[in-house]
């Protein structure tokens, strides 16, 4: 019984220990400079363990996942990042979201090649983020 518990729970604990931040940035129109800068901004916030940014035309969608025990800071981190990125790129329409839906959908969009479809999807996601009901 104990062995079984170790077998099942061991990997879970080990996964919980990993401190790695995974940050992925995609977008056909994104230039290298912006890519690095945005990655740095996300990497600098310690509460975030996963960040995905999709850049297309003038739209930037950043989906972050905040560490489980820091979940109550979620909104604050979201706001701070939003402000930081907006100040740096006033010409971009930025949305930073800690929503799981955004995380899931942006992960799928990372490999998307078609620019038109990407624009459409990002717009749809941004509208969805505003939805209240």
């Amino acid at each position: 019984m104990k062995k079984l518990a170790v077998l099942f729970l061991g990997p879970l604990f080990l996964i919980g220990c990993s401190n790695e931040q995974t940050i992925e940035i995609s977008g056909v129109s994104a230039d290298e400079e912006k890519r690095v800068e945005i990655e740095d901004i996300i990497r600098n916030s310690e509460e975030v363990y996963s960040g995905t940014a999709i850049m297309v035309d003038k739209e930037l969608l950043v989906a972050i996942q905040v560490k489980p025990w820091l979940g109550f800071k979620e909104r604050k981190v979201e706001k701070r990042l939003q402000k930081e990125i907006e100040e740096k790129y006033p010409d971009l329409k930025v949305l930073v979201s800690s929503d799981y839906k955004m995380h899931w959908e942006t992960q799928k969009l990372l490999d998307e090649e078609d620019d038109k479809k990407l624009t459409k999807e990002v717009k749809k996601l941004k509208d969805l983020a505003k939805e209240e009901t």
Partner: peptide, 14 residues
């Protein structure tokens, strides 16, 4: 909740 988020157009909020 995850089912709704992943397979339908729901967000954490909704």
């Amino acid at each position: 909740t995850y089912l709704y988020i992943i397979f339908f157009d729901f967000t954490d909020k909704t």
